[in-house]
Design a protein around this nucleic acid. Structure first.
Length: 895
RNA sequence: GCGUCCCUAGCUCAGUUGGUUAGAGCGUUGCAUUGACAUUGCAGAGGUCACUGGUUCGAAUCCAGUGGGACGCACCA
């Protein structure tokens, strides 16, 4: 042996070694040059986040794409980074402070931000370190963060620019209020869930009468904010109520009965209470009918002063209480169980409250147009394409984007107020810039800096990450309008790999900003990954505690093993039902590869050098076949990559290595005599093949492939597999005849093994084998390559000819129309053999009947394409031929 | 409620414009193994392609309906 090859593959050792080597040699780093760029920007994980299975899957896929592109000769650049994740991070900081007995209210904005930065520095970037364990070949020199100083500036620049263009405005609207985080949320951050709730039927007394009217509501606490009761004008049951007033129970406030078509006569009692402050529709009806708005809730979800009752108590406690209280005074008529959908905050998971509020908005109507068109015409391609449907639906019904958040962690809105009026503000990058503007706009030159007050709110996290593909390369671009060399070179990026969950939150908006600012798409392709689920089909999540620790998995199975396990089971857009079994399979594959390599090295003489070659021995069918199989696989794998079918590509490489190379090629390479070594030429060819296989495997399993490659190369050069050339498809090496001939030989070997198994003959026992071929040419070819049969099966004598003398007692098989006999005196059970042959005859007869029926059908003959008819005819002839042979054989056993 | 997608072996899924008797991995059964690998090898069993009807010479594949499931969107109190 020329090198010490450890008997056991130690994944963690090998993986750390090569990752360090790649980093030392700066292989992941990219600079613009004259090659074509292949850019991927990472979906930035939350800066204080921890790696979960979703990241593992997502980043493995990106790495596969990037590594292959790098080998193909592109200038591959994968930009890593993190997102400040405004609401998510702030929630974490608040929680941490609370555990220390500090509440956010006790702190000033500056103090709170100090804590937040501290937390960010402490936990920030951990997730990126974890990605290195996975093998991610990111250009770490480019690591970006959405709150980096220059990045933040670009975010503010966009706000200023869109405001100037009139695309950003301030408006009072019904918004989604998160009472836990105490901020607004965009519609996309609200998750609607079906919940079991109750429908309360409550009666209101009609003023001046002893009559009552009954309404139905799921939120009885909001009756305190009722300012009308509404009926459908066409509802004859309630005609008598027109123009009258009713009394809100408990608070005894008189409110009018109004009429509006909006009310569904069929639903509930057909009588609807109107609470303009707490329901989107009620608000609109309130506007239309000039109703008063009474906001009975505080920001934290407790009842406000305006409610008059239950002040300071939580909305859900009050719901129960008020039902009791109403019942006591005889106003609660009925409570029925009811299922309805309630909006929950994506981040805090509490029911949101519709609330009237003054917020900042982006007018999406015009901005979204190019983003819709360019996805529909595949300028930006979605994989799988089915997601185009929901994308279109969302884009066609797009609503304005609420971008202000009542939080502190994030990009503070660059708006400075100088007065109380609706338009008494200016937009500017700093207080210094704001002052002259404010003086101008107000006409008050005495205005001082201290008279200006910056907006307290920050921007939606996605308002910064929608610039990701632009600002990571040139944060000044928004301001200057002139793309630097980097942006020109790397934009548009190639592939975006992300979860469908954030299609609207992030993907759509990047496309919008891309067309608005670059006048070009941000990426050519979007690859949507599936959701990683546990065995019960539940989404893996921290709260459920059903997610394995990725780092533990890597320790146990190796990063290569996990990468393979995940990729094996996940086509684009399909969920990944995760099972550790998959990782085990990946680890076993590493072991298989390692042992195949070990075996080859054991055949080397001491001091001998590895000298892998792509030269093959043209006399050797196994060489020709292996070369052809590799060619075939290169072509298929390239095609799979083009279609983003990474799992199919991996399966083909897996099968090429395990089934073809290990189980057939290496078996055939073994010397005939045990103990002898593989001839050097053959060994070098095998190593040459091995090297090709490692190249094909590298994007999927970068570590073990690099390890093997470096051993095989045995060079002192610095060249790494990761920057070696992706195997080129070469039609001339794809010899179909070789594939077919070897296929026949494989089937013959299988047949012989099958016969042994059926007749219970040990694999060691040497057999006499007789093969009667249909054609002389087949006989010649088999004779020429009889070594294949002899090496893989214990054979004492082998006769191959068109005419052979059938043995008296035998077991047999038909392979491609050729008969194969094994004389087995005393071993053959006549009864069993007859059954076996009869079964085969029955099968073929059934098959033949089908073909004959087809061929007798005039419709088929007339309408089917000629080649299909020809094929049927050939099938018929072949089947008849085989049947004749089988019937002959059957006779032999009836003797 | 509207829209989209899905239903193929015990499980997870392939099956590209309709054309061999529908494939893979895992699992399962039997056999083998003292030197590459039990993290192995060989051989086998296993499917009315959810159901019904239609189009066609021919349907897992196209169409319609039924049943079951997933997701997206929406203001049903």
């Amino acid at each position: 042996m020329s090198k010490e090859i450890p008997a056991q593959y130690d994944a963690s050792k090998v993986e750390d070694k090569w990752y360090a080597y790649w980093m030392e040699n700066n292989y992941f780093h990219s600079e613009p040059d004259d090659r074509e760029s292949f850019t991927v920007v990472i979906p930035p994980p939350n800066v204080t986040g921890v790696l979960h299975m979703g990241h593992m899957l997502n980043n493995t896929i990106q790495d596969v794409l990037v590594r292959r592109a790098r080998m193909q000769g592109y200038n591959a650049c994968w930009v890593p980074g993190t997102d400040h994740a405004s609401i998510a991070t702030e929630a974490k900081v608040v929680r941490k402070l609370r555990s220390k007995g500090i509440t956010k209210k006790d702190l000033t904005r500056e103090e709170f931000l100090e804590h937040a930065w501290e937390w960010t520095h402490e936990h920030g970037g951990i997730i990126l370190e974890q990605l290195k364990k996975l093998g991610a070949s990111c250009d770490w020199d480019r690591t970006a963060f959405t709150m980096d100083e220059d990045y933040s500036e670009s975010v503010i620049d966009v706000f200023i620019d869109l405001h100037e263009k009139g695309k950003i405005y301030r408006g009072e609207r019904m918004i989604n209020w998160d009472p836990a985080a105490q901020t607004t949320l965009s519609d996309e951050e609200v998750i609607h869930k079906e919940v079991d709730s109750k429908l309360y039927h409550i009666r209101y007394k009609i003023v001046g009468e002893d009559e009552y009217v009954t309404i139905a509501t799921t939120r009885p606490e909001t009756i305190l904010g009722d300012t009308a009761v509404c009926v459908n004008p066409g509802d004859e049951r309630y005609t008598h109520l027109h123009g009258k007033k009713v009394i809100v129970p408990l608070v005894n406030r008189e409110i009018p009965v109004i009429q509006d078509d909006y009310v569904d006569m069929e639903f509930g009692t057909g009588c609807l209470k109107i609470t303009p402050a707490h329901d989107v529709n009620d608000y609109e009806i309130g506007q239309k009918h000039n109703l008063e708005t009474i906001d009975v809730l505080n920001a934290d979800g407790t009842m406000s002063e305006a409610a008059q009752l239950y002040i300071g108590e939580d909305r859900f406690d009050v719901r129960k209480k008020i039902a009791n209280d109403l019942e006591e005074v005889g106003h609660l008529i009925e409570v029925e169980n009811y299922k309805n959908k309630v909006g929950f905050s994506e981040r805090t998971d509490v029911p949101i409250e519709p609330r009237l509020s003054l917020q900042w908005w982006v007018d999406m109507d015009q901005l979204s147009k190019p983003a819709l068109d360019n996805v529909m015409d595949d300028t930006v391609e979605f994989h799988p394409a089915k997601f185009k449907n929901s994308y279109r639906h969302w884009m066609e019904n797009i609503r304005d984007w609420n971008i202000s958040r009542q939080l502190w962690w994030g990009h503070r809105i660059p708006v400075y107020y100088y007065g109380e009026g609706h338009d008494d503000y200016v937009v500017a990058k700093s207080l210094e810039e704001a002052l002259p503007k404010a003086q101008d706009k107000s006409g008050n030159q005495d205005l001082k800096a201290s008279d200006l007050r910056q907006d307290e709110d920050v921007l939606d996290t996605w308002f910064s990450s929608w610039l990701w593909p632009i600002s990571v390369f040139d944060p000044d671009y928004i301001r200057t309008g002139k793309a630097n060399q980097e942006l020109q070179y790397y934009y548009p990026t190639k592939d975006l790999v992300t979860a469908p969950e954030i299609m609207f939150l992030w993907v759509a908006r990047m496309i919008v900003s891309g067309y608005e600012y670059m006048d070009d798409k941000p990426f050519d392709n979007v690859y949507y990954t599936g959701i990683v689920r546990d065995k019960k089909g539940r989404k893996m999540s921290k709260s459920l505690g059903n997610s394995p620790d990725p780092l533990e998995l890597i320790k146990k199975y190796g990063a290569d093993g996990i990468r393979m396990g995940m990729l094996f089971a996940t086509p684009a857009g399909n969920d990944l039902p995760f099972d550790e079994k998959l990782c085990e399979q990946g680890r076993n594959f590493c072991n298989k590869i390692w042992n195949a390599f070990r075996f080859l090295t054991m055949n080397m003489e001491d001091g001998e050098k590895y000298d892998p070659t792509l030269e093959i021995n043209n006399e050797d069918i196994s060489d020709r076949w292996m070369a052809a199989r590799i060619q075939q696989t290169i072509q298929e794998v390239n095609k799979d990559f083009d279609n983003y079918k990474l799992n199919d590509a991996l399966k083909k490489v897996y099968s090429l290595i395990w089934d073809d190379f290990c189980d057939w090629y290496i078996e055939l390479a073994k010397p005939e005599v045990y103990g002898e070594k593989i001839p050097v030429d053959k060994l070098n060819t095998a190593l040459g093949f091995f090297e090709q296989l490692m190249k094909l495997l590298h994007p999927f399993m970068p570590f073990i492939s690099e390890e093997i490659y470096q051993h095989i190369q045995d060079r002192s050069t610095n060249e790494a597999l990761l920057i070696s050339e992706w195997p080129k498809a070469d039609e001339s090496k794809l010899n179909e005849d070789d594939l077919k001939l070897f296929g026949t030989l494989q089937q013959m070997v299988s047949s012989l093994r099958n016969i042994r198994s059926e007749v219970n003959v040990s694999p060691k026992e040497e057999l006499d084998v007789l093969i009667s071929t249909k054609e002389q040419s087949t006989a010649d070819a088999l004779l020429e390559n009889q070594l294949v049969l002899k090496k893989l099966e214990s054979i004492q004598s082998l006769s191959i000819a068109t005419e052979i003398d059938k043995p008296k007692v035998y077991s047999s098989s038909i392979v491609d129309g050729n008969e194969l006999f094994v004389p087995l005196d005393g071993l053959v059970d006549f009864e069993k053999e007859r059954e076996r042959i009869q079964k085969e005859i029955d099968r073929l007869e059934g098959f033949l009947t089908g073909i004959e029926k087809k061929l007798a059908n005039k419709g088929f003959i007339n309408n089917a394409p000629e080649n299909v008819v020809e094929l049927e005819k050939k099938k018929k002839a072949d089947t008849e031929d085989s049947l004749a042979k089988l019937r002959e054989q059957l006779k032999d056993f009836e003797k």
